[in-house]
């Protein structure tokens, strides 16, 4: 009897702490990452390890886009372009000047943050379709410049770069590297979203004019969101290029941006765990479907339609709503 009462009061306290600290999202994220950490025990083939690394890349890019699209409400269609910039920033430095790949990845982060800041500034007064079109145009310019600067980038042939851990190292090392980066990014974003900055970004998403009247410097925080979101996409691109060993303009295709955005939407926009869930379910699923010879994009597109129609909050977003009702509101 006493044990039961003790447990109940302990659970009540836990609930209060989780609600107060808005930690449900973080707990779910960390639990998902724990599952991801032990996944290679069950999926032992090198092929599937490779698939999981790519899924982690997409998840990281979707997490980056989610900060801008999901939390700040700025519908950019250029996450693929920022991954591309991240890839080529490091690839060019490593290929031509023999920079250390780690330093190259650092420069990916710096360059994408700077270009993101610039794009954010250009897009300040744009909303809805105008913003979307501008970011599409930006993405196409970046891809076009890279494709046609053949003397420097080798165009569609791509630029070969050394892998992060040299040749002969298995996919698992990359897998856990990505995992570590995603954990750090998720924890950072958890604290960011919980802070004043997170509230400001979400207020801009809900109503820019009202936010401005409530003391939020909309211009500054929108630009900040653009830069940080681009930085995370650039980080994903920088890591990815040193996993596959080739920088190719294909990453900048609109289809890739669509994939990244789709993962965030299907997982749950404006949630911490949503893009992670989206990336880690959808990429392996599309690879699995590919084995049967079915066009994976057809399945992916069909899923988007189903989720948007029936679970607008996304897979994790809907689950989160249910969990919140069960845990916090009985």
């Amino acid at each position: 009897m006493n044990t039961s009462i003790g447990l109940r009061s302990y659970w009540k306290k836990c609930r209060q702490v989780i609600e107060e600290k808005r930690a449900l999202d973080l707990i779910f994220s960390l639990m998902s990452l724990l599952v991801i950490a032990i996944l290679p025990i069950f999926l032992t083939s090198a092929y599937w390890h490779g698939v999981l690394v790519v899924a982690m890349f997409y998840a990281l890019a979707a997490i980056g886009w989610n900060l801008l699209g999901g939390y700040t409400g700025q519908f950019s269609i250029a996450p693929g372009a920022f991954c591309l910039i991240g890839m080529y920033s490091s690839a060019l430095l490593v290929h031509y000047w023999d920079w250390n790949p780690y330093l190259g990845i650092f420069m990916s982060v710096v360059s994408t943050a700077t270009i993101g800041l610039l794009l954010g500034w250009i897009c300040l007064r744009l909303r809805g379709p105008y913003l979307a079109l501008t970011t599409i145009a930006f993405a196409e310019i970046i891809r076009g410049v890279i494709r046609f600067s053949y003397d420097i980038t080798r165009g569609d042939l791509g630029l070969s770069v050394p892998k992060l851990y040299g040749s002969g190292v298995g996919h698992l090392d990359y897998y856990y590297t990505f995992l570590l980066v995603v954990i750090i990014v998720q924890i950072f974003l958890y604290f960011l979203i919980k802070s004043k900055i997170g509230l400001y970004l979400q207020s801009i998403r809900d109503d820019e004019v009202a936010a401005s009247g409530r003391g939020v410097n909309v211009v500054w925080w929108k630009t900040f969101a653009f830069a940080l979101s681009s930085l995370i996409c650039g980080l994903a691109g920088g890591l990815y290029v040193h996993f596959i060993g080739l920088a190719s303009p294909e990453m900048g295709l609109l289809m890739n941006s669509g994939l990244i955005i789709g993962m965030a939407v299907i997982g749950g926009m404006g949630t911490l765990a949503g893009p992670l869930v989206g990336g880690l379910i959808l990429h392996p699923l599309s690879e699995y479907v590919r084995e049967f010879g079915v066009q994976h994009m057809v399945v992916f597109s069909f899923l988007i339609i189903v989720v948007v129609r029936f679970w607008r909050a996304g897979l994790y977003g809907s689950l989160k709503n249910i969990l919140e009702r069960l845990i916090f509101h009985g």
């Binding site: 509230l199 979400q202 207020s203 998403r205 809900d206 109503d207 004019v209 009202a210 936010a211 009247g213 409530r214 404006g270």
Partner: peptide, 11 residues
């Protein structure tokens, strides 16, 4: 204090 709501509905 505007005529229309200036609240953030999703917060």
């Amino acid at each position: 204090l505007p005529q229309d709501s200036s609240l953030f509905p999703y917060l």
